[in-house]
Write a protein that binds this DNA or RNA. Structure first.
Lengths: 207, 207, 207, 207
DNA sequence: CATGAATGAGTATTCATTCAT
DNA sequence: AATGAATGAATACTCATTCAT
C-alpha cells in the first residue's frame, strides 16, 4: 500500500538530486559548460536515469527556471511582507530583487538567460507554467500600485503596465551592472540602482 | 599601379564577407549554434582564412557588436536630429531604439547578448573600444536631458545617471517583448512600450 | 548469471584493443603523428569510446609506458633468473635490455620517448606509478651489485648509484645504434655493445 | 662588382635571422609548439621567405642541430684546452657536456631530439654533415684516451669505442636528470653525475 | 627575392542522446 | 527503474605548405 507513495517520494528525490547537481554546476561553471554528463556524475546517477526523469537538457533548465521564479517570488514576498507604506513596499521589493540577483546568482542567471536569449526555447506547456510564476510576481507589484492609488499615494491608470515596466527596468538595470567602472557615472552601482528605483517610483507619485 | 590598394580593398571585402556570414548565422541560428565552421562555409572561405582575418571567434563577435553599436548610434542620431524639443527627442530616440531592435534584429541580438550574458567575454582592449561606442549613445541622451534642464523642461540633477536608467529600462523592456500574450496586460507590446517611454520621460518633467 | 563478469571482460578487451592500436601506430608512425583519431579508426571504435576508456591522450600513452616497463621487467627477469654468478647476471641483464629494445621496439620506443623528451608529460600520480615500475628494475640491478660486493666479486660503495649509471649508459648506448655506419668505429653495433657492457661491469670488479 | 658579395652576405643574414627566431622559440615553447608561422613572425620575415631559405621545417631544425653540435664542440674544447692531465681532461670534458646541456638547453634539446627519436629524419646528405660534427667531438675524446694510453695512465685497446661509450653514457645520464627526486638514490643529480663520470674514467685507468 | 593570402586536413576533446541489458 | 557503453558529429583552433603577385 504505502509502497506506491514511497516510490513516488523516491522519484521526487531523484528529480531533486538531479536539479541540485544541475544548479550547482550552473553556478560554478556557467551555462555552456554545464553538460548532462557532468550533471549525471555530480548527481551520482547514471546518464540513463537523467533521461528517465527529464526529456532532455532543456527540460532540466526549464525546471530550474521555475524553481528560480518560485524562490524569487518567495524572497521578494518575505522581504516586503508587513510593509504597509506602498512606496516603501515597492522600494524594498526592488532592492530585494537586486539582492536576489547577487545572492542567488545561479537562479538569476537562469531566469535572465531565458528572458534575454532571443530564441524561443520552451514548449507552450512549459511556457505556461513559467508564465504563471512570473505573473505572480507582477501581480504583487500591480497590487501594491493599486493600493497606493486607492490610498492617494500614487497616480497610475494602468497598474499592470507599470508593474511590467518596473520589473523590466529593474532587470535591465541589473544587467548593466557589468558596465560598472566604464559607462557608469555613479561611483558604484549600488548608488546608481538606488537612484534609479527612486526615480521609477517617483514617476507615479501623486504630486 | 594601384595594386596595393586593390589588395587592401580585397582584404577589407573578405573581412566584410566573414562578418556578413557571421551576422546572418547569428540571426538565423542564434549564438551558441553559430560556429566558426559554419561561418567559413557560409562565407565561402576556408577555416584557415577566417583565422587569418580574425584572431578567434570572439573577435568576430566583438567586431559585430562594434558594428552594431555604430549602426545603432547612427540610426538613433538620424531619427532624432533636427528635433529641438527635448521631450520629443527622448521619445523619438526611444522609439528609434525599439525600431532598431526589430529592423536590425541581428545587430540588436549581438548587443543584447553581450550585455545580458553573465560571462565576461572580451579582453580589456576590446571592452574599451566597445564601451566608447556605448558611451557615445549614453552621452546623446545625457546631453538632451541637460539641455532640457537648462531650458526648464526637465528637472534632473544627474543627467548621466538618468541616461543610463533610460537605456537600461528600454533594453529591459524590449527583452520583455517575448512575453507578449502572456504576462502583458496591454493588448499589444507597442502600446505598452509607448506607455513606458512616456512614463520614464515624465519622471523628469518639471511639474 | 555471469553477465556482469562478461561485461567486465569485454570492457578490458576494449581497453586492450585501444592500447594495441595506439602501440601499433606509435611504432609505425612515431609519436607526434599518432593522433586520437587514428587510434580510434585503427581500433575500430568511435572517438567517443576512446574517451570513455581513457581520460585523454596522455593517459593512453602513460598506460602504454607502464605496460612497457612491466614487460621489460618481466623480460629481463626471465632472462637472468637462476643465474648466480653476479657478473654474468649483469651481463645477461644488459643483453636482455638490448634485445628487448629490438624485439619490443614499440615498447622500448615508448619508454625511450618519455625518458628522453624534454617536456614533462605526466601528472604526479601517473609519474608515481611509472616510477615505481622503473624502481623495480633499478633495484634488480642494485641487488645484484650488492650481492657481488658481499661475495667479494665487486667493489662498490653505492650500488644504487651504479645501478642508475648502468641503466643510463645502456639506454644511451642503444640510442646510438642509429649512428651505426657513421660515427661508430666497430664494424657492427652488437660488438660495440658487448664491449661497452664488459667495460661497465669491469669498472666495479675487484682487482 | 661587390654587389654579388653583398647579396651573398644579406642572404646569410636572413638565414641567421630565421635560425635565431627558431632557436628562441624552441627554448621558450618547446619542440612541438614551434611552428613555421611563429618563426616567420619572430624573424620578421614572410612565410614565403622562410621557405625560400629552407626547404621545409625539418631543414631548419637540422641546421639548428648542426649549429648545436658546433657550439658543443667549441664549448667542450674551450673548457678542456690547456689541460694536459688526461684523466682531468676527460673529467672536465664530461662536466662541460653536462653544463652545456643546462646552459644551452635549447641546443641540447635539439641534439637530443634527433638522437633519441626513433624515426629517421634526415637525408643522407644532412646525415653526413651532422655526423662529421659529431665525429669531431668523439675524436677529441678518443685522442685524449690514446694519449693517456701512450703516457701509461690509461689502458684501452679501442679508444674510439670507449669514446662512444663515454659519450653515450653521458648522454644517457643527462636524460635521467628528470628522475631526480624519484628513482635517484643520491640526494641531488650533480653528485650522482660526478660519481658516474669518475666511475667511467676509472674503468680505463691503469691499476 | 620577397610577400602574405589562402588552403583544408588536421588536432584533442566534448556533447546530447540512444538503447541493449 | 536503472545502468553505462557507444556513438559520431561537433567544437575552436593550428599547421605546413603553396603560389600568384
Amino acid at each position: 500500500m504505502g509502497q506506491k507513495e514511497r516510490r513516488q517520494r523516491e522519484k521526487m528525490q531523484r528529480r531533486t538530486q538531479i536539479l541540485n547537481a544541475a544548479r550547482a554546476l550552473l553556478l560554478k561553471e556557467g551555462f555552456s559548460k554545464t553538460s548532462v554528463n557532468k550533471i549525471s556524475r555530480k548527481a551520482e546517477l547514471s546518464i540513463g536515469s537523467i533521461y528517465f526523469y527529464f526529456k532532455n537538457k532543456e527540460e532540466i533548465f526549464a525546471s530550474l527556471q521555475q524553481e528560480g521564479l518560485e524562490i524569487l517570488h518567495a524572497y521578494v514576498n518575505s522581504e516586503t511582507e508587513g510593509i504597509t507604506d506602498c512606496r516603501e513596499r515597492l522600494k524594498k521589493g526592488a532592492e530585494a530583487y537586486y539582492r536576489f540577483s547577487r545572492k542567488h546568482k545561479d537562479y538569476f542567471d537562469v531566469i535572465n538567460y531565458f528572458l534575454s536569449s532571443p530564441q524561443v526555447f520552451f514548449s507552450e506547456n512549459e511556457k505556461r507554467t513559467i508564465d504563471s510564476k512570473g505573473a505572480m510576481i507582477l501581480e504583487n507589484i500591480a497590487n501594491t500600485v493599486s493600493r497606493g492609488v486607492a490610498e492617494g499615494v500614487f497616480v497610475e491608470d494602468y497598474p499592470g503596465n507599470f508593474a511590467m515596466l518596473f520589473w523590466a527596468s529593474l532587470h535591465g538595470l541589473i544587467q548593466m551592472r557589468k558596465l560598472q567602472g566604464t559607462m557608469l557615472e555613479s561611483e558604484d552601482f549600488d548608488t546608481f540602482f538606488q537612484y534609479s528605483v527612486d526615480k521609477l517610483i517617483d514617476s507615479i507619485r501623486r504630486k
